[in-house]
Nucleic acid binder design. Structure first.
Length: 579
RNA sequence: GGUUCCAUGGUGCAGCUGGUUAACACGUCUGCCUGUCACGCAGAAGAUCGCGGGUUCGAGCCCCGUUGGAACCGCCA
């Protein structure tokens, strides 16, 4: 007897005797005939039980989601169902066996389930029976398979690095694991296999990759969770463009293989960090729509308007975005919403002009006619355009307009849903001044190579750029990487600038500082986020839809009950007191 | 750490201005039904309205607290 997947039977199979297994998706008992939709991983097929058959009573007692075994013959249906793939055939049952019953389930296994997420997470195994979750997991499998093959073909070797490792002072908070044998000491779960992969380069493996779990003890978001997977890769004897080419290859091939959307052609557009911030107000711009942030500070050098006058005195900027043909779409209330949004980002307020036969808006009465006309001229404003203006300190203005740009585009549905628009943002600054703590900090990754090599740190700190790059798609950061700094003196100097002295750093990163003494090849790499890639392919807003067993948005696992308390003896063994 | 929103039979929701037998859909159970496919028809069961306190003659509804959930800010790349 041939074994098929339930969802694959076609008219050609008529006459075949088959053995099938599956779940009772739905039972239709017509009083005489009983129809059952039998579901397995591949789909459903209808089976028919007739009055008088030995197992008729058994079949009529089946509860939904029971597991059964069927032997029977594939026959052409009397009445066909064009809506399902197997709708032309059905199974005439000859043997029927109940393998497992099911109690009443907490929610129905249907595509358009009404169950809320916490219920679905609590019974994740039932949710996985639904097509959506199942398909997302099957896709995840296909994508990972594809990626592994691709990496293998490109000459990368896959290596597993430790999950129990040492805490690192940089970056996110570590998840920590107590040590029984060394009381008072702790392992940490890796935020990324950063150090290991660099050590593999010192080890001479030249091209490494890993589908690496990464752990970060930070508050989750819809697209961010405690543990996630990255395609971690590292290469020796390369420059930035070599790594970017590999990244372009991976993203282009994965997206064009698994998505029907139009993928931006290679090479992807490159933007410096400065360009990205200046034009889009973010280092992860969505390039599916224009609406650039434009500088209009020059128009107000001699303004009488007190707010702008003050901004100019304080060396701030006045920037704007033009929302085409939207003046009539934003009411007073809408504008208040937008204002709240920018205030959350520290902007002092939002000014606007609506250009129609008459010019209205918050600035209409306070600016001179000449100024209003100058704005129109410089920004090439047309009828019914809405001009949103924010003034103040540069970074705040850019960020706030960046947020507005995204919000307005969402409101007006400006982004083409059928595009996957990639770009690469590079030339990140090495350092960033942290106003809150009044000190310099790394802007990105401390192990990155600054432009200019040994002379890198001679100029102004804020002007120092690094060989650091992000891959961005539709406004999402998809990957992050860098050419690493393999010059120990330079590396230590970088850490000194952010306030760690050499002894401390050498001690914290002992492995790196020792290993790099023994012939470290120049190297660099990157790490595309697997979960993000899947979200984009499947149009999921929530990362939990592409992972099998995600924790809830608060970081708890309602199904497993984690995190959980330990037994007193366990705590004692670990030498831990819980306050 | 902060802001906003949510919590009502198994699931999802309604419940207006404080007075209802707490409505509806799906699911479940019973009966009828031999070509359904979201089967149909008739009927039934099933809810201490998350928990604790308060205001009130009276609370699902108002107030305080608490627990759990969601989104966002901080945090995180």
């Amino acid at each position: 007897m041939k074994k098929y997947n339930n969802g694959e039977f076609k008219i050609e199979n008529v006459g075949e005797e088959v053995e099938l297994y599956g779940w009772v998706q739905r039972k239709r008992n017509l009083g005489g005939l009983i129809f059952i939709d039998l579901r397995d991983k591949s789909g459903i097929i209808q089976i028919v039980i007739r009055p008088g058959q030995d197992f008729y009573d058994l079949a009529s007692s089946f509860k939904n989601e029971s597991v059964i075994r069927v032997v029977g013959e594939i026959v052409e249906r009397e009445s066909k169902n064009k809506n399902i793939p197997t709708g032309e055939v059905e199974v005439n049952v000859k043997e029927l066996e109940l393998l497992a019953t099911s109690e009443d389930i907490p929610f129905e296994i249907v595509d358009d389930t009404t169950a809320l997420e916490d219920t679905r997470l609590k019974y994740r195994y039932l949710d996985i029976r639904r097509n959506k979750l199942k398909n997302n997991l099957l896709l995840r499998n296909d994508v990972l398979h594809f990626i592994r093959n691709k990496m293998y073909d490109l000459g990368f070797i896959e290596i597993q690095t430790p999950i129990l490792t040492a805490s690192s002072p940089e970056g996110a908070r570590d998840f920590v694991v107590p040590s029984r044998n060394f009381k008072g000491k702790f392992y940490a779960l890796p935020q990324a296999p950063q150090i290991y992969k660099e050590l593999l380069m010192v080890g001479g493996l030249e091209k490494y990759f890993q589908v690496a779990p990464c752990f970060r003890d930070e508050d989750p978001r819809a697209d961010r969770t405690l543990e996630f997977y990255q395609l971690d890769l590292e290469m020796s004897f390369v420059e930035e463009d070599d790594v970017l080419a590999v990244g372009e290859d991976i993203f282009y091939d994965v997206f064009s293989t698994f998505s029907n959307k139009k993928v931006s052609p290679k090479p992807f557009r490159r933007l410096s960090y400065k360009e990205a911030i200046d034009n889009y107000g973010t280092d992860k711009p969505d390039l599916r729509y224009e609406m650039l942030i434009q500088d209009i500070t020059n128009l107000f050098q001699d303004t009488e308007f007190s707010v702008f006058k003050k901004v100019i005195e304080e060396k701030g900027i006045i920037n704007a975005i033009v929302v085409k043909n939207a003046a009539d779409k934003y009411s007073r209330k809408n504008m208040d919403e937008l204002t709240d949004l920018v205030k959350k980002r520290q902007a002092s307020g939002l000014a606007f002009l609506k250009y129609n036969e008459e010019v209205t808006g918050s600035l209409a009465k306070v600016l001179s006619e000449k100024e209003i006309e100058a704005v129109k001229e410089q920004l090439k404003v047309e009828n019914n355009d809405l001009v949103l203006i924010i003034s103040g300190e540069r970074k705040i203005v850019k960020t706030a307009l960046g947020v507005l740009r995204v919000k307005v585009a969402a409101d007006l549905d400006l982004a083409d849903k059928n595009r996957l628009e990639m770009c690469i943002v590079n030339d990140f600054p090495m350092f960033e001044y942290d106003e809150a703590n009044q000190k310099w900090d790394f802007c990105h990754n401390p192990f990155s190579m600054p432009h200019g090599g040994a002379k890198a740190y001679e100029g102004n700190l804020e002007d120092i750029l690094a060989y650091q790059y992000d891959f961005v798609c539709n406004g999402n950061e998809m990957a992050s990487g860098a050419i690493r700094n393999h010059d120990l003196d330079l590396l230590a100097k970088g850490f000194e600038i952010v306030g760690y002295n050499r002894d401390y750093v050498e001690n914290k990163f002992k492995s790196i500082f020792t290993a790099f003494k023994y012939g470290c090849p120049p190297h660099g790499g990157m790490a595309p986020g697997i979960d993000r890639i899947l979200m984009l392919i499947q149009d999921e807003q929530n990362l939990r839809e592409v992972q099998a067993f995600p924790p809830s948005a608060s970081g708890q696992d309602l199904m497993m009950g984690s995190p959980s308390e330990l037994e007193p003896y366990q705590l004692e063994e670990l030498g831990i007191k819980v306050s």
